[in-house]
Design a protein around this nucleic acid. Structure first.
Lengths: 331, 331
DNA sequence: GGCCATCGTCGAAGCGTTTCGACAGTGCGA
DNA sequence: TCGCACTGTCGAAACGCTTCGACGATGGCC
């Protein structure tokens, strides 16, 4: 293994000089800088992460905490994970992946053994048991999702209430007055995943002058069928549908077709989340989850917290509409 | 931060004794052991990972390398990732997540800066550009997937040729002689992802006495429809279908239904991969991808390689059939 | 009863960095 | 011309752990 002193010897300087070239924390003459950098490249030097962590108490590692439950939508999850990795790399950070099934002890272990500088927590629930643990850790953490009580921890999320309003507006603007919501699976509401509730409340507010009907819905085919039947039974005049359930979306569209309801001729649809099947017959009008933005902001928050300068804040991103062809004027 | 010398002082022993208690590399009296462990618990001591890595040149970190491409099936991917994390924890290892988009430099960086002890590589392609890099690294790596030339690197994968034969056998045993294959998307074959080719060859061998027809198929709704139409056009007598395309599976079933073909009355279906929608009308007969087993074996291979004692081998797991109700005897 | 192994513990060296204080050399203003 | 503030570099001291050799104490064996 090639060490900093190998580089120093090769470049004819001291080890500390090499260190300063690398960190830029002291001024270095252009000539020395050039020589050192040449040596580094020639020898293929990479600083020993452990030694660096020991001396500087910085690991340049971000710990990413995955959800407690596995009933979340995997593709959405995966988008977050990869996005975190690439974003972190942009800040010269690597990512350590933790699952929540080691519990509080796992967080404490990683924090106290100095394996990571900060924590990013995904799929935060309304009353998330990880929050008290995170707060007592000696390292900063950022929540992706908003709990009932952030307790001084910074949060990022889509403004789901506003997202619901955007969805409804999209339909209302096209003249629809009878609007249904296919929401998250019952289990998601039960465990109190905050975004589901926030979306629902936003939907209810936005539809106050309209004829709205809402249903929670499991992602499986059968449940989707029942759910649609119930919606249309509750309001046979339904011409607008908001789907806030990425996992069920495919089945919803298939079942609408099965029931002879064409999109958008018979029923207009707005979905929340990425439209994964890019080449549907009808491109969907969606309010996408701004994964990249959320992650970018979360990582930046973590970086700022690590520089000491940060007041924890809750940032709710303004939803955007991705226009498709699945909303038509009411006939 | 509480260090080993704090523990030592608290327990009235030397730091090295604490270290030996932790590692078990020298014998320790029961009494000392007890006292040290009590101190560790009381002080909440966690060894500093960096210091440990520096002194022992062991990080207890496994680097998990994610695919170059993002067109792989996300839920399957995610199963691997979470499985790797929990399995690694069982060996007292943590997981550092790398994407391949940093390229060879990323692998070298992590290896040379001693951030991880070994590499696990997912979604290995037939001619994977990462293989030469991995081979020249000073740390062991294990491939999940089998390239054309493993070049001395250990590999784990499902025996996809055998899996294809099991699928065909499942249908043939029920009397079906006209069998279709819905394979991976064209792009997967083009880039030479080895499992797709191996499955296809296995399918062709297994159907040598039968009337077989095969189609590659993109996962979107439209492509699935066309694909089905082509299959039935090629052989109107088709009564058996093998689906080796997790992403398309949902659409395939929906489109069969749309076309009035009932499963299994009109057409028997065997799928490769997890049946994610647990409560389908008809539980599917599947040959699941043994994610857990593959990961377990891969991690064990890595552990063995780290202990120095290992001859690289390619392990192909024998496929199992998960019986459902989607295969019926031919009428 | 003396000798040799073995057991349990300790002190010290070393792992590869960062960072702090020191210190020559340079250039500037007074 | 002297003094001072920089600039660029260096040496040494940490950082917290593992591991090696050493060493007193025990116990078994002849």
């Amino acid at each position: 293994m090639v060490s900093i002193s190998d580089v120093a010897r090769d470049a004819g300087v001291s080890a500390s000089t090499v260190s300063y070239v690398l960190s830029g924390k002291r001024s270095i003459s252009a000539e020395t800088q050039r020589r050192v950098e040449a040596s580094i490249r020639r020898l293929g030097y990479h600083p020993h992460a452990g030694a660096r962590a020991l001396a500087s108490s910085r690991t340049n590692v971000l710990a990413l905490v995955m959800p407690l439950r596995t009933d979340v939508h995997m593709p959405a999850m995966m988008r977050f994970v990869t996005s975190v990795v690439t974003t972190a790399r942009g800040h010269d950070y690597d990512v350590l992946l933790l699952t929540s099934d080691e519990g509080p002890a796992g967080l404490r272990r990683v924090a106290n053994s100095a394996m990571a500088d900060a924590f990013l927590v995904m799929e935060v629930q309304s009353d998330d048991s990880r929050i008290p643990v995170l707060r007592e850790l000696s390292r900063p953490s950022v929540l992706i999702g908003v709990p009932d009580d952030p307790g001084g921890l910074p949060c990022v999320d889509l403004d789901f209430a506003a997202a619901a309003k955007r969805c409804v507006a999209e339909l209302a603007d096209a003249g629809h007055t009878d609007i249904g919501l296919i929401g998250s699976p019952p289990v998601v509401y039960e465990r109190g995943t905050s975004f589901a509730g926030r979306f629902l409340r936003g939907f209810q507010e936005a539809t106050s002058g309209l004829n709205a009907v809402t249903r929670s819905c499991a992602p499986d085919y059968e449940a989707v069928g029942t759910c649609l039947d119930e919606l249309f039974a509750a309001n046979p005049e339904l011409t607008g549908l908001v789907v806030h359930n990425e996992a069920a979306l495919g089945s919803v569209l298939a079942e609408l077709r099965n029931r002879g309801r064409r999109v958008p001729e018979d029923i207009s649809v707005v979905a929340v989340g990425q439209d994964t099947a890019a080449h549907r017959e009808v491109p969907l009008t969606t309010v996408p989850l701004p994964t990249e933005d959320m992650v970018r902001i979360a990582v930046e928050m973590a970086m700022r917290a690590l520089q000491g300068s940060s007041t924890p804040e809750t940032r709710l991103l303004t939803p955007q509409v991705n226009p498709g062809k699945s909303v038509a004027p009411r006939r």
